[in-house]
Design a protein around this nucleic acid. Structure first.
Lengths: 346, 346
DNA sequence: CCAACCCGATGACGCGTGTAACCTGGAACG
DNA sequence: CGTTCCAGGTTACACGCGTCATCGGGTTGG
């Protein structure tokens, strides 16, 4: 039962013959004034007198032609852009973060910035920085700041990028850094499991592209906690598919683990389902902890314990970014906090 | 148990005194050649002889200064940009679509384009088009094309945007349209439920910002099917929270429905959990169908039937986009298909 | 010995803006 | 009447880049 014609609605040439862009010179010509006057009127430039009658002629001409200023030319002339670049993959970070990013977009828009996501895949951070630098953004805001280097920062700075704000586990020279240590997430999960009496903890490591940036420090955080207690922490690879999950569940008992931190809630849900299929009981045979505390977590059976992240408010971050761009520096901001929401799975 | 210092790692002024951007003139000066030569070397311009020795001097100077070309100046001069703009909210569309978007990013990058996501919130499509037009992208690609108008398209065209590709349920004048009718999703779900013998179908309508664009046509598609059979279809509001879900489940029997199309898999999972809490049996008391066919769907108990979307390959779309930009027109492309993956919940 | 040619490199222009500096005609003022 | 002043404009320039037209000078050909 396949619905949808799969058909084609329309394919048409949409390039007019002389489809050149409308410029302010066109507006000036139509309004019968100079280009400078057009600029003064449309930008409401202070300190320049233009009669109301002329203003209206200009505005009407602009409307009639559908004039929109060229951001490239404007930034070129101004020497700075109002672009804020967020290098980020859309989906990798999970729903919690994407919602936060949406909020940030709105907050920055209100301050006159145009936020832009760019999800290039670069092995070398310096290559990445070069690609971003070409756009000459006013600021760069990176969520996975731990992939950054001082050299990459230098590339951006030399390209005239005025502010660099990264979320990272350690300060990076030349960048305004906000504490966002994924190790804390792993540590919170591990501490919780230790407090619940578990001693042999597995930590899920997803092999999916881009996730190791988050997974490795989470493992390290758990290991740091393990070093202070008589418990073991070991990495366990798990791809996001049912086959991988049931495979892992089948050989679970051989691993000799009594708890698992499952990277995030989605992997946790996947794994709990596989455990059930393999006849393992949660939390009796194995305790499970997720992360992100999505709605999904509370829906699991048993309900899933999860590490909840408290991100700084998007509004606050937008303010900092603005201050960095305008003044060159900004007050410190409290970073991320992580704590476990305890439910039946652990 | 709160982990994370919430502390501050570093806040520093990162603006050097004369932090102007490095230009090709700087490179020329250092290499002891003209700016034209720098351009020829760095762009490998054909038809111009430059001695290998000079080439190396230029490249070395560029490397030493950390020179990165200014994309704005380049597009200004070239009269066209290599920017492809995707107006899209990051999270709204769900994981299936975000993964697809990531693929598309890569495919376009290989063709030399820089893809950029812009998630502005505009009530008026013409305002939105104006904001996008300022960036003078080579192309605009919109997933929720049904919000578009011919007038908005005109704004973009007058700004010199060479290609406009939208996914929409109906052709839009001036745009290359690919069939992506959310009505087909609702219709597929409804047909499936009718075939399974259900007669009183509810359709979940999420009140969340931005989702009504998808929800309304899905409802309409279901209603279209209902008109051809002795069944009823009625909208049911459900916010994405446990409270809303259990509230709905509590008054479910009063609604007199024997099936529900739950907008997508996440809403379906939420609702199934609430049904269970209210003592309702799935599928005996009520059949449930989701959409997107995420991994999540198969994990539900009972396993969730789901409408699977087959999107055109990202690679193919990238090809079409390139052709539209370069040639002004492109061959038609088959649109989205939808079919139900049947599992235990229906 | 001059013309023809090619190699290697440069000067100058314009893309679309914003703005500092300048211009003009009329009114106010001494 | 000469000067000053102001409202209401305009002219000219620079931002960083790609590229067309040009040029000096060495080699080759007639």
């Amino acid at each position: 039962m396949v619905r949808g014609s799969g058909g084609v609605l329309g394919a048409m040439a949409n390039r007019a013959s002389g489809a050149a862009s409308v410029t302010s010179a066109d507006v000036a010509r139509l309004a019968g004034v100079s280009r400078a006057t057009v600029s003064f009127v449309l930008n409401d430039t202070q300190g320049h007198r233009v009669s109301e009658q002329t203003r209206e002629r200009v505005r009407s001409a602009a409307r009639q032609l559908g004039y929109v200023p060229n951001a490239a030319a404007r930034s070129l002339r101004a020497g700075r852009s109002n672009l804020i670049l967020m290098p980020a993959s859309v989906s990798a970070a999970g729903r919690l973060v994407s919602d936060w990013v949406d909020e940030l977009h709105s907050a920055l828009e209100q301050r006159g910035y145009v936020t832009v996501l760019h999800a290039g895949r670069f092995a070398d951070p310096v290559d990445a920085a070069r690609a971003w630098a070409e756009l000459r953004p006013a600021a760069v805001l990176a969520l996975d700041g731990d992939r950054f280097t001082t050299e990459a920062s230098g590339v951006l700075k030399r390209a005239g990028v005025r502010a660099q704000l990264v979320f990272a586990s350690r300060p990076i020279a030349g960048m305004y850094t906000i504490a966002f240590d994924h190790a804390e997430i792993g540590a919170a999960a591990a501490e919780h499991l230790v407090a619940r009496g578990r001693t042999r903890i597995g930590v899920v490591m997803p092999p999916e592209r881009g996730l190791d940036t988050f997974a490795r420090p989470r493992l390290a955080g758990a290991q740091r906690v393990a070093a202070q207690h008589p418990v073991t922490v070991s990495p366990v690879e798990l791809a996001y598919s049912q086959e991988a999950a049931s495979g892992l569940a089948a050989r679970w008992s051989a691993l000799g683990l009594d708890a698992v931190f499952a990277f995030n809630d989605e992997y946790a849900a996947l794994l709990m389902h596989a455990f059930r299929g393999a006849g393992l009981s949660v939390p009796d045979d194995v305790a499970v902890v997720g992360a992100d505390d999505l709605v999904l977590a509370a829906l699991q059976q048993p309900a899933l314990s999860s590490v909840r992240l408290e991100l700084p408010s998007a509004e606050r971050i937008a303010g900092v970014l603005d201050e960095l761009v305008v003044e060159g520096s900004a007050d410190p901001v409290a970073g991320m906090r992580a704590h476990v929401v305890h439910r039946a799975s652990s």
